[in-house]
Design a protein around this nucleic acid. Structure first.
Length: 317
DNA sequence: AACCCGTGGTA
DNA sequence: TTACCAAGGGT
């Protein structure tokens, strides 16, 4: 069975199979060189800010939907200082329909923290990145690797699935990324930091384009000859089925509709406008209260609501 | 640990 | 059409 031994060369050992002589990452890197998408945040001119913004936007959100928003965002706010200088509501408005708008709020907060703590420069240490609002394990490592070309295991859902299949021989891994996953992936990374950073992007690309969740395109996979899952006959998942996500009729849908009204308005809106988007008053009020609690909306007067920090809003109380 | 948080494309 | 899924984070 193929062993994923990264760059380790066992002195004196004679490999039994040719495939074992080549590091896993080399096969993926070669493939990546041929098919990698030309995404704007992968270009050097994107800079750390461009990378950070892309990573936050890409959380649970497909690349194609992120592209136009990222372009507009970077054009308007070329750095964290420019974003921090504007009201949070502007970030929420620019976020558009990307979903999970709390990310916009946290990105605005992160920009402010970067200005305050780091003089406006994106920090390059994992600790400092992790301390920023909305930046978790994945995003901190992604920024350190892709923006600063450091050697860190970067494990998202794509890499998690790739490892589950290619290394562990399972159809899918646990929902959460574990410390063990990070160690496994780090063992696959080349020693040279720049090459490791490129390999991290390559792993994610492989998971996103070939080793996809539903119908993996194994015929075009650069590691098919040593994929443990494929060699085991592509066994189906044995874990418990995931709970259905559901959306219609949930508070999330109501929040989405309420926020869409605020986002599309120039300034404060009357409560009647919000009432019109959902019939059931108890759920509607709960959703609005949730938006207020989260700081995604503010009350600016009797029966008037707006996005946070809106200049018009503060004048109209 | 389990649950909450949006939105739209695809089969 | 329903169901699945998408570069997670916070609590």
């Amino acid at each position: 069975m193929a062993v994923m031994d990264g760059n380790q060369d066992t002195a004196g050992a004679v490999a039994s199979w040719a495939v074992d002589e080549r590091p896993f990452a080399d096969d993926v890197l070669e493939w990546y060189g041929l098919v990698a998408r030309d995404l704007p945040w992968r270009r050097p001119e994107a800079g750390p800010w461009g990378v950070l913004v892309s990573e936050v936007m890409l959380q649970q959100t497909p690349v194609n939907r992120v592209l136009p928003v990222w372009e507009a965002w970077l054009a308007r706010w070329p750095g964290p200082a420019a974003l921090a200088a504007e009201p949070a509501g502007e970030a929420v408005r620019m976020w558009g329909r990307l979903g999970y708008p709390r990310r916009a709020l946290r990105l605005h907060q992160a920009a402010a923290a970067i200005v305050e703590r780091h003089g406006g420069a994106i920090p390059d240490r994992l600790d400092d990145l992790l301390a920023l609002p909305g930046i978790g394990t994945y995003t901190a490592r992604a920024v350190a690797a892709f923006a600063f070309r450091q050697r860190h295991a970067v494990v998202d859902v794509n890499v998690r699935r790739l490892v589950a299949r290619a290394v562990e021989g399972a159809a899918e891994g646990p929902a959460a990324v574990s410390r063990r996953d990070l160690a496994t992936v780090e063992n696959l990374l080349p020693a040279d930091p720049e090459t490791a950073a490129r390999a991290s992007a390559a792993f994610m690309e492989l998971g996103a384009l070939v080793c996809v969740a539903r119908a993996p395109r194994c015929a075009g996979c650069p590691v098919r000859e040593r994929c443990a899952w494929l060699l085991a006959g592509s066994p189906p998942s044995d874990g418990p089925a995931r709970r259905p996500q559901g959306y219609a009729g949930t508070d999330r849908q109501v929040r989405g509709r309420l926020l869409a009204v605020l986002r599309d308005a120039d300034g404060p809106v009357d409560a009647a406008l919000l009432d019109a988007v959902w019939d059931e008053p108890v759920q509607r009020d709960r959703a609005l209260r949730g938006l207020l609690d989260d700081g995604l909306a503010v009350a600016v007067g009797p029966g008037r609501y707006a996005l946070p920090g809106d200049v018009t809003a503060s004048l109209s109380v």
